[in-house]
Simulated assay, not measured.
Amino acid sequence: MTILEMREKRNKAWEAAKAFVETKRDKDGLLSEEDAKTYAAMEQKVKDIGAEIDRMQAMEEMENALNKPVNTPIVAKPMKADGNEKAKTGRASDEYREGMLKALRSNFKQVSNVLQEGVDADGGYLVPEEYDNRLIDVLDQENIMRKLATKITTSGEHKINIAATKPAASWIEEGGALTFGDATFSQILLDAHKLHVAIKVTEELLYDNAFGLENYIITQFGKALANAEEDAFFNGDGVGKPLGLFAENGGGQIAETLTAAIKADDIINLVYALKRPYRKSAAFIINDKNIAAIRKLKDNNGAYIWQPSAQAGEPDRLFGYPVYTSAYAPENAIAFGDYKYYNIGDRGTRSFKQLVELFAGNGMIGYVAKERVDGKLILPEAVQILKLKADTAA
């Protein structure tokens, strides 16, 4: 008897058991003792048939496993995918990427249907996801704040709740009255400020397939965006651009303003001006021009306080804390703090746009990359600023 026949037999036995119960109920809906025993036997038969079906299925699976060949012949070509990889769709698909390159090289005269999902009201096209990811990689390499800060992708105005005042504990006598404090909260708003970069490409270069046009555009756009971002993340005033880490209003807290040349003790005072919880993940940010003056500082034993990195790719250290340098950090200040409290909000995705008519007379094509980004230090006490004397770097 097959498994299918056994299943049909089980169904018939179960239907018979249900029909027996319905015909044998008394006026109270109960079964007599004899009928209950009969139904129990019918129910047990259904269970026994089910157990037999399970046994037959297990035997069939065992038989199939034993009948499989020990060695499976190779039928696919070497290095060919096994077909289990999930096909990329949308802007991540190979078709979209190829369509974008084709559109770039044809001055957007040959636009395939695959690009339609990236069309906006102004005739722009969303950057394919591979471009966007590599553009982010370039920004991370060129921009130290993107490495240190907290990055958020936003779709609208992003509000961050901040505890303005915190409740404090107090001692009371046994049976004494409780005192209640107020916990108040404020909000930091991450908006979206527009940043763009434009380049011109000759038509000859555009049609030259041997030239790495894709990598050239990504690299140039990435460097330009990264430089503009880092300048704003450090020095921005929050008007049409992010609010910088060194901003007078909304930036880090001023720990001290020096009136003489910087000394090793001033660095120590800066470290301990930062509260202990923030010091665990703290680092220095210094302008490149001030490095020479800092590296010459010595402790009371005559040893240099600067600690060169012992491993390639790792930052140098100052009193055990990492040191990051940037040409965009102000020359008259040193920052020390936990930069995870600087939030960078990326609004949406980056986009390309071509400018055909603007440079047509010169035989060139213009391209524009745009992004919308904001940045703010949400806890000023997490970063302490040491203001330097004007001639410190000298």
Rank of each mutant, 00 (worst) to 15 (best):
M6Y: 08
M6L: 14
K9G: 03
K9Y: 02
N11S: 11
N11R: 09
A19L: 15
F20R: 01
V21G: 00
S32C: 12
E34H: 11
T38I: 15
K45V: 07
E52L: 09
M56I: 03
Q57S: 05
Q57H: 03
A58V: 13
E61A: 14
M62R: 10
K68G: 08
M79T: 11
K80E: 14
K86L: 14
K88L: 14
R91F: 15
S93F: 08
D94V: 15
E95P: 00
L101R: 11
L101M: 14
R105V: 02
Q110K: 13
V114L: 01
A121N: 13
Y125N: 06
Y131T: 05
N133G: 04
L139F: 09
N143P: 06
M145D: 02
K147M: 04
S155A: 14
G156N: 10
I160H: 05
N161W: 05
N161F: 07
I162H: 09
K166N: 02
S170L: 05
A177R: 09
L178S: 06
S186I: 02
Q187G: 04
L189S: 12
A192K: 08
L195C: 03
V197T: 10
K200M: 10
T202N: 11
T202S: 15
L205I: 01
L205H: 04
N209T: 11
A210M: 07
E214N: 10
N215T: 12
Q220C: 01
F221R: 01
A224W: 00
L225W: 03
N235A: 08
G236P: 12
V239C: 01
L243H: 03
G244S: 11
L245A: 09
I254Y: 01
E256D: 15
I262E: 02
A264H: 11
I268G: 01
L274V: 05
A282K: 04
A282F: 07
A283E: 00
F284N: 00
F284H: 00
N287L: 04
K289M: 10
N290G: 05
I291W: 00
A293V: 05
I294G: 03
I294A: 03
I294M: 11
K296I: 10
S309Q: 07
S309H: 07
A310T: 15
A329Y: 04
E331V: 15
A333I: 09
D338I: 07
Y342R: 01
G348V: 02
L355H: 14
E357G: 01
L358A: 06
F359D: 07
F359W: 13
N362R: 05
G363V: 06
D374F: 06
I378P: 01
I385P: 02
K387V: 13
A390Q: 10
T392H: 05
